[in-house]
Amino acid sequence: MDTDATAAIAAFYEDFGRRWAHGTSPLYEHWALGVSTDGEVLSRLALLAKPKQQPNLVFASARWEGAPLVRYPELRPWLLDHWDLLVATGDTRTVQTNEVNRCATWLPPLARIDRPLALLEVGAAAGLCLFPDRCSAEYATPSGVRRVDPPTGRSDVVLACTVDDEASVPTRHPDVVWRRGIDLDPIDAADADAIDWLANLVWPGPDHDPRVARLRAAAAVAASDPPEIVRGDLLERLTDVAAAAPSDATLVVFHSAVLLYLDAGERRRFADLIGGLGPAIDRDVVWLSNETTGTLPEIDAQVPEGTATDHRFVQTWNGRAIALAGQHGATYETRPFAG
């Protein structure tokens, strides 16, 4: 057994449990911490390809195959007995957390752009986040809840987000005139099995239950007006897909929790590529990013020392940190970057 490999996996699961699942999904926290100290399961995980080792995929595969939602000591025998089935499911599935509630954290910066918008999401999955203009949103502010509806009226997709500043609440919805996505494995929003898998990827726990209904409502919107999701590597397809955007619109390239799946060199290549995208395609381009700390060092350097980043992305506008965005869109905090 490769002790270095199992130690790295153990640390990954412990970080997932303590940093990400803690306080939001008690069951996944318990499962992750259990795996992190379980030598037998760690040795089995070490035999898998690295992308197949991640907690989100392993736990979702277990649930897909009927794992009981019990604490880790009771789950462990099931895992060992059904390991081959779990691995087979993981081999045919990927983690594509198409969390539409993240649109609640995209609406504040998008509302600032007083021009028609062309939206290009990298890592788009089913493209559910390509429709922020068709979502209603309820923002819990320090003075109360404020609701923002699309010009067409109340939507069946209702986002929920807590903000730390009244000024973050958008006063208008963006005027989206074009939308595209890029993904290694695009999802058809009309494919019931694919949407069932996306729903299965939602973590168990009361904080997450509303996400499933919201996801299915957003899938219905996307299925009724399917956006084009281009299959391919974002590093290879970004320029040509972006060049198809209308020249009289501001092109917004955006993504959430995508760069963490690239290595350091690929992240740098992407940042350099998008930095020169505007001149390359002769378009006005805005780059909006929701990524974890540890993704790009120049972004990390902008986060004030001591700032809590658990369960949060650092949101950036053209590489400048502007907010902390909850990993599932439930919070939006601008005060760490005010001034």
Rank of each mutant, 00 (worst) to 15 (best):
E291R: 13
T97N: 13
P68F: 02
H311P: 03
V230F: 10
A242F: 07
A244L: 13
H173L: 15
F12I: 00
S143C: 05
G326I: 02
E74N: 13
D282C: 01
L201E: 06
I195G: 02
A199M: 01
D188M: 09
I281F: 06
R269K: 07
L215N: 07
P55N: 02
A189F: 01
D15F: 11
W83C: 08
T250L: 01
P142I: 00
R147G: 01
E121H: 04
T316G: 07
T293N: 02
R214D: 00
G276K: 09
V87W: 10
V314N: 02
L110M: 12
G34R: 05
P132R: 03
L75Q: 14
L85I: 13
A190Q: 09
H255S: 10
D209P: 00
L42T: 02
L159G: 08
A167R: 15
V35M: 12
D156H: 12
D225A: 14
T105N: 04
G34F: 10
P279V: 08
F131G: 00
T94H: 11
A67G: 03
V253Q: 07
D272N: 15
A49V: 01
A338E: 14
A32K: 04
L235R: 13
V253W: 05
L47K: 14
W83H: 08
K50L: 12
I187E: 12
D149I: 11
K50I: 04
E305D: 15
S43I: 03
G181Y: 07
V169N: 09
I274Y: 08
I322Y: 05
E74L: 14
W317M: 13
D4K: 12
F59Q: 14
F270C: 04
R146A: 12
V303A: 07
A124D: 09
R231K: 15
V177P: 07
T309W: 09
L198N: 11
A5V: 14
P336F: 10
R180A: 09
L33S: 07
E29L: 05
G265F: 08
A244V: 06
W203M: 04
T307E: 10
S256M: 06
T162M: 05
M1D: 11
T105I: 03
D207M: 13
A140V: 13
F131V: 11
S43M: 11
Q327E: 11
P68S: 01
L324P: 00
R214A: 00
A325Y: 10
T316Q: 05
G153Y: 01
D2C: 03
R76Y: 04
A243M: 12
V212Y: 10
A125P: 00
D185A: 15
D310P: 01
N101R: 08
L79N: 01
G90M: 10
P279T: 06
D185I: 00
V100G: 04
W20P: 00
A325K: 08
T6V: 14
A199Y: 02
D164P: 13
G326Q: 07
D84G: 09
L184S: 14
G205H: 08
P174W: 03
